[in-house]
Nucleic acid binder design. Structure first.
Lengths: 152, 152
DNA sequence: ATGCAGTTGCAAACGATTTGCGATAAATGC
DNA sequence: GCATTTATCGCAAATCGTTTGCAACTGCAT
């Protein structure tokens, strides 16, 4: 497991360079995000962080998420229900498969699909700046144990 | 081009079978949707319909969109800004490419991508129920001509 | 025509997110 | 360390898109 503290420190420098400050609440929220293995929304992050600092406010979470996003420290996704969910951005690009029964989110990536997207866009006279690909499905049978790679 | 009136009539039957009613406002909204070549949101639909019936209310638009959606008469999409946009569903499945500069929406479809999606889901032990694929991009500049250079 | 739902318009309620404001606390300089 | 500047915080109020309770209304089946 990579050092959370190191990442927080690195981010602290990044903030300073932008004329921003590393506050206790930002540190706390960063830590919560680094430890999350799911895709929590603002309220979820707030709840977890609030347990460590009962003075934290929800608006600070929202404001912090915005800062972290513009700093490139996290990614924001809005799935079907419309609420923003966050995940920290130190991982490779990937898309999401959402279990419509449990709400579980599985990450995956497909260079082939990316290539096709670029090709399609080019044919339409566009270059892709970003994209959103979400699969909504339900479990068929237990996934095979071998040969299945879900990059997380 | 299929007749709008015919589609409205067909839908009227469909509604009746579901124990629902074809009201003036639903007729009007359907007409507005059938004539739309873009992906208007509730307010946009309301504005256009309101011009023909100043007694119409925005909540009726929302309620109608919900009815139309569950009846399969329209599709609802929520792009990056989060607001629901609608298009009527008498066309083949397609995904969307959104021009991040103009907001224009281009439709496209790719059987190859669909196939890949199914394959990926299967590998993860899932079957796809629906998906969302949106490309956000900008128009590529037309190829430069010799000696002609537009500085930006 | 009559009557029972399904529908409507209106305003109030909603839930997620944002923002104005005075108070607080990080950086910076001394 | 200690003061100074100003980014940030907590809180409550404000937005915004969308939903809903309710009383009046209107399809439409009989």
């Amino acid at each position: 497991m990579k050092g959370i503290d190191q990442r927080v420190e690195a981010f602290e420098d990044q903030l300073r360079k932008a004329g921003l400050r590393m506050t206790q609440q930002r540190r706390l929220i960063l830590r919560v995000l680094a430890q999350a293995d799911d895709h929590p929304d603002a309220k979820g992050i707030f709840t977890r962080a609030f347990a460590h600092d009962p003075t934290l406010s929800l608006s600070t979470v929202y404001r912090t998420m915005k800062v972290l996003e513009t700093q490139g420290a996290i990614e924001r996704h809005a799935f079907e229900d419309g609420v923003s969910r966050y995940e920290h951005a130190d991982q490779a690009h990937h898309d999401h498969l959402i279990d419509i029964e449990t709400g579980a989110v599985v990450e995956f990536s497909s260079p082939e699909i990316e290539a096709l997207q670029a090709k399609i866009a080019a044919e339409l006279g566009y270059e892709i700046v970003r994209h959103r690909l979400e699969l909504y499905g339900r479990k068929t049978r237990p996934a095979r144990r071998k040969g299945v790679r879900k990059d997380a």
